[in-house]
């Protein structure tokens, strides 16, 4: 066999193998086990420690490009909050789609709860431009930063806004973030206003967030699809309702746990290609310049 041909394999063949590897678990889920880790358990424990009526902010700081990783996180966290009767303020500081992610997710999850009342148990404040400026201003008054909700309704008449005026009334901020926005919540809001911050981020951003977790500036980090699947597993282990929700085939199509099957298979394929490439590289005598 000509080893050189194998070394210079067309990249499209690699794409094809990866595509097949990704498609198989989507068509036939395998159900590989997921083990929760401490960075994810931190958020679960924090929400468990809250009393009914306590408030959290969930900031949708991502767009459609991060939807596969962060939507499952959002679903799991919202379900946990609403089952614990925690009040949720929903907002977005990411311009390209954050507010639409929030609208879709909130509509979908709140439809599972008959007793939830908009403006009392939760409110969608919508998007606000300005990034750090908006985050800083929330410390003074949430109502001044968001005079209207996502649909343009005056929020001053909503009971939830009269109870939760600024960061002093918020137990934890959960940022579902792409890029740098999760970092702002830690190095600005946590540092200057001592609000506990948890970040659910895309996997690309996860490594840098572990430094914030270690220094205590974040109470939890949910890194990519893996973090989301761990949170789903925590819910399944602790609640009957979660076992029911996450056994529904329609829900499992959207769940991170299903996605982890794809991750496992494609990672194995990539590892095999890396080993194979290195073996071929040495077997062909480290050709010059390649």
């Amino acid at each position: 066999m000509n080893l050189k041909k194998l070394l210079y394999i067309d990249r499209r063949i690699i794409y094809l193998v990866v595509a097949i590897g990704a498609l198989i678990p989507i068509i036939r889920p395998i159900g590989l086990p997921v083990e929760p880790t401490d960075p994810v358990i931190g958020l679960f424990d924090k929400l468990e420690s809250l009393s009914p009526g306590d408030a959290v902010i969930i900031s949708y700081d991502y767009g459609p490009s991060s939807e596969p990783e962060l939507n499952p996180m959002s679903s799991a966290i919202l379900r946990h909050c609403f089952h614990r009767e925690i009040k949720v303020l929903i907002m977005a500081v990411f311009p390209l789609g954050g507010v639409n992610m929030a609208i879709r997710e909130v509509e979908r999850i709140t439809s599972e709860f008959e007793d939830l009342e908009y403006g009392v148990d939760y409110v969608n404040l919508g998007y606000k431009d300005g990034g750090q400026a908006a985050m800083k201003a929330l410390a003074v008054s949430i109502r001044d930063v968001f005079p209207a909700d996502v649909d343009g309704n005056d929020i001053s008449a909503m009971p939830i806004i009269n109870e939760i005026r600024n960061y002093d009334d918020v137990e934890v901020v959960i940022s579902l973030a792409t890029g740098i926005i999760g970092e702002w919540w830690a190095d600005l809001v946590n540092a200057q206003f001592s609000v506990p911050v948890a970040v659910g981020c895309t996997a690309v951003s996860a490594p840098k967030y572990y430094a914030f977790l270690r220094s205590g500036q974040m109470i939890a980090v949910l890194g990519g699809l893996k973090g989301a699947s761990e949170y789903e597993e925590l819910l399944r282990r602790n609640f009957v309702w979660a076992r029911k929700v996450y056994s529904d085939p329609a829900e499992m199509k959207l769940a991170a746990t299903t996605g982890m099957d794809v991750q496992a298979i494609v990672h194995v394929i990539i590892i095999v290609f890396i080993i194979f490439g290195n073996i071929m590289y040495f077997a062909t005598g480290k050709e010059k310049g390649r």
Binding site: P68, T202, G224, L225, K253, G259, Q263
Partner: peptide, 27 residues
């Protein structure tokens, strides 16, 4: 080592995006 860890996480993120699109196309 840190670049390797970041690269591993980046692969995980990109596979998630691929999975999201494939899941949409299939389901």
């Amino acid at each position: 080592i840190s670049f390797g860890a970041s690269f591993g996480y980046t692969i995980m993120a990109r596979i998630s995006l691929l999975m999201g699109r494939f899941s949409f196309l299939v389901n």
